[in-house]
């Protein structure tokens, strides 16, 4: 399953502060869309609106429309909990539950929907998700060990396994490799490319090489100054954004002249 996400003049607020202003874009299914831009430009804020995690922070709210395959994610009778079960998220720092085993971590999201599952079913889901996250071979002999005993890169792949175990429509990755070494980073990048076969993948990254390596579409965000809202400057195919951007700001950023 993979869904098209449509943002229609979306404004994102923290209380009275407008953090991201007037974003309109279409995020394609079965593709990787990268959000790039300098720190504070609102890309992380924006990605958190896609699964309604933004509103977890008191006073945070959204105006405008966000459609997922035509359905309004912020509709009056939409339960944010439902939305989050369809949109998986991977965070900046690997965050497996330290009190759970590797297996329980993988199943943690799945258990929310299906409290009763047979042992065989649980094993099947665990294996499928861990294989999907390229982690199975490394952990298959220690599924009952704590997830916090893995290396950083393995923990991050465990988090990805946890996210895909519930078979979501969309996977959001908020700087998933910023805390990882280059080898673990490469593993996550390869994985992201595999994931787009089945999911809509959105990735926030500070690493422009990463965006150009793996993404199909790139959105560049920028702010005019501190205290001002972040804006979507340019959104296009990744080759276009990196080789021949329309906007001067984008060119300056991707060529490393600022930011």
């Amino acid at each position: 399953m993979s869904k098209r996400i449509e943002l229609k003049s979306l404004d994102v607020y923290y209380k009275a502060f407008l953090a991201v202003e007037d974003v309109s874009m279409v995020i394609e299914p079965k593709a990787i869309t990268a959000f790039i831009g300098p720190s504070g430009c609102g890309k992380s804020t924006l990605i958190r609106t896609l699964n309604r995690m933004h509103e977890v922070i008191p006073g945070a709210r959204v105006e405008g429309q966000l459609l997922m395959d035509g359905e309004d994610v912020y509709g009056p009778d939409v339960d944010p909990v439902r939305v989050r079960r369809q949109v998986g998220m991977v965070f900046q720092r690997p965050n497996p539950f330290p009190t759970m085993s590797i297996k329980d971590n993988v199943l943690s999201g799945y258990k929310l929907n299906n409290s009763r599952m047979s042992k065989a079913e649980a094993e099947e889901i665990t294996e499928k998700a861990l294989v999907g996250a390229n982690l199975w071979n490394e952990v298959k002999d220690r599924l009952e060990k704590p997830g916090s005993g893995l290396s950083g890169g393995q923990q991050q792949r465990l988090c990805i396994a946890r996210a895909i175990a519930v078979e979501p429509d969309v996977i959001l990755m908020d700087e998933p490799t910023s805390a990882l070494d280059p080898i673990s980073t490469a593993a996550i990048e390869d994985l992201a490319v595999e994931l787009k076969e089945h999911f809509t993948v959105v990735i926030v990254t500070h690493n422009m090489q990463q965006a150009s390596r793996i993404s199909d579409m790139t959105a560049f965000f920028n702010i005019a100054g501190s205290g001002l809202p972040g804006k979507l400057i340019e959104y296009d195919k990744t080759e276009k954004v990196f080789s021949n951007p329309t906007e001067q700001q984008t060119e300056d950023y991707v060529s490393g002249r600022f930011g």
Binding site: M53, R82, V83, G88, F97, T99, A163
Partner: peptide
Amino acid sequence: TPRLHEEAALALGATRWEMIKMAVLPFGR
């Protein structure tokens, strides 16, 4: 309780009570 673990639970689609069961109580045990 690390904010990171609470958010992990919420992002999986846990309700507040489920988040507490997944992240807060085991951590506080």
